[in-house]
């Protein structure tokens, strides 16, 4: 178990471990709402859309966190604008935003010739996580947990039944953009860990696994966070030991858990039938 002794010895590995665990927790919590509200594709689009923000931040010499976050929020607004103002179906508008922002980001990053490797932004390089990244991830994850806990009632009722939420005096538009902002923040801090391309898997796979195993929203959120942690740690192990892209190893770990849950879930009636 060389991995464990290395964790004790190397500071960069400790930072990577803590960051990936935090990303697992935060994306599991947000991801639970993302899949229940049918926003998976939207999450994918926002994660791709932060890329130009990363490049622009380098150009302007500001923290990539700021540029990427603003860019993600801008993309969310664009998607909302297109679906409000035009009869184009939402998956089409999401597809356009996703691909155009990604394309723009790739051009800008190549032009800037920054020290940041495009490959690492796209696929994640958790072993390069800095103390600065760790602290940002910690802040965002805590923010996500606290806000979701505070507004749990509003999030639950508006995700389950938007009409009823409105009659309770809840502004469901505000809730929607509130979740979009949290989603964007979580996406930006996951950049280092899993990379742009695979962030959506961290959002939806642990949450979908948890969904298969419980009939209670609160339990689903806790399970999703737990599965997020487990896949992060296993993924980190394989990434470090075999020198693989961390995003890929983390996502494969999450998917293996999903497959196990899929086979044994009572909801799928695959092996176990639901008792009536």
């Amino acid at each position: 178990m060389e991995f464990f002794s290395d964790i004790m010895n190397y500071r960069f590995l400790q930072q990577a471990l803590i960051t990936s665990v935090l990303v697992g927790i935060g994306s599991g919590v947000i991801g639970s709402f993302v899949i229940l509200r049918g926003m998976s594709l939207m999450g994918d689009a926002i994660s791709h859309a932060v890329l130009p923000g990363v490049a622009i931040s380098f150009m302007l010499g500001i923290d990539y966190f700021i540029g990427a976050t603003l860019c993600g929020i801008f993309a969310a607004l664009c998607m909302g604008f297109i679906s409000r103002k035009s009869p184009i179906k939402s998956d089409t508008s999401i597809g356009i935003i996703l691909s155009s922002f990604l394309a723009l980001g790739m051009i800008l990053i190549t032009v800037v010739q920054s020290s940041t490797n495009l490959y690492h932004i796209l696929f994640g390089n958790i072993l390069a996580v800095t103390m600065h990244d760790l602290i940002l991830t910690l802040i965002v994850t805590l923010l996500v947990i606290i806000l979701v806990a505070l507004f749990y009632k509003q999030l639950l009722v508006s995700s389950f039944d938007e009409t009823i939420a409105q009659t309770y005096g809840i502004n469901t538009q505000v809730i929607h953009y509130f979740l979009m902002v949290l989603l964007t923040l979580m996406t930006v801090v996951s950049l280092q860990t899993v990379g742009v391309i695979l962030i959506v898997a961290m959002l939806i796979t642990p949450a979908a696994t948890a969904y298969l195993l419980t009939d209670k929203m609160s339990r689903m959120i806790v399970l999703a966070a737990l599965f997020g942690i487990i896949s992060s740690v296993i993924g980190l192990y394989f990434s470090f030991t075999y020198n693989l892209a961390s995003g890929a190893t983390i996502v494969v770990s999450a998917t293996v858990m999903f497959c196990i849950a899929f086979v044994f879930s009572k909801k799928n009636q695959f092996i176990f039938k639901k008792e009536q």
């Binding site: 639950l156 389950f160 419980t214 009939d215 209670k216």
Partner: peptide
Amino acid sequence: SIDLTFPIT
């Protein structure tokens, strides 16, 4: 208008 697949009792 109810989502029957939602994880709720």
